[in-house]
Simulated assay, not measured.
Amino acid sequence: MPHFIFDSNEDGTIRQVLKDGEPHQDAVRLEQLFSVVTIYFKLAAFNLGQMVQQEQSEQRRCFGLQSFLMSLTGLEAFTNTFFHLRGQELGNNAMLKRVAQSHGSLSQKIRELIALTPDGPIRDQDRLINQIFALSQLRNEIVHPRWVPSSVTIQGDAPIAIHGLVENRQALFEDRQLCREALLWCLLVVARVAAARGHEDVSGFMFHWTANYGLTLPAILQELGLPADQ
Rank of each mutant, 00 (worst) to 15 (best):
Q66S: 13
R86G: 05
Q66T: 05
F173S: 11
A158H: 14
V193A: 11
P149F: 07
T210S: 01
L221C: 11
A171M: 10
R197V: 02
S105V: 03
G204A: 14
E89Y: 11
F207V: 03
I110P: 03
G74F: 07
A228Q: 15
L18M: 07
C179D: 04
H199S: 10
N92E: 06
E55D: 14
D7N: 11
I122L: 13
G64I: 00
W147V: 14
Q137P: 01
Q66D: 11
L128V: 13
I122R: 08
H144G: 11
P2M: 09
Q32V: 10
G91L: 04
S107D: 08
N140E: 12
V99P: 03
R180A: 14
F68H: 12
T216K: 14
S150T: 15
F6M: 12
L43T: 05
L72C: 08
I5Y: 12
L188E: 13
A228D: 14
F83W: 02
L184A: 14
R61Y: 00
F68V: 02
N212P: 00
Q137D: 11
Y213V: 09
W147M: 12
I142V: 14
E200A: 15
V193P: 02
T81M: 12
I132G: 01
Q101K: 06
P149Q: 04
G21Q: 05
L90F: 05
F41D: 00
A45T: 05
A191Y: 14
F205I: 07
L106M: 07
Q177P: 04
A45C: 03
H84E: 15
P23H: 01
R29T: 03
T81F: 03
L217R: 13
H163K: 10
M95W: 05
Q56T: 08
A94T: 04
L135R: 01
F6E: 04
Y40M: 01
L65I: 00
R86I: 05
K109N: 09
L90H: 10
G49Q: 01
F6W: 07
I129S: 02
A182D: 00
L217H: 15
L188C: 09
R192Q: 15
Q170E: 12
D20N: 15
L18K: 03
S8G: 06
V99S: 02
R29D: 02
F34P: 09
L165M: 12
P118G: 04
C179L: 06
S35F: 06
F207Y: 15
S105G: 06
E167F: 13
A134L: 07
Y213T: 04
S71L: 02
D7G: 03
G21S: 09
R169T: 15
L224Y: 08
P218E: 05
G21H: 05
A195E: 14
N168I: 08
L172G: 03
A27N: 10
F205H: 10
L178Y: 15
A211D: 15
F4S: 05
I220N: 02
A182E: 00
Q101W: 05
S67N: 00
E167M: 07
R146M: 08
P218I: 02
E174D: 11
E174N: 14
Q53L: 12
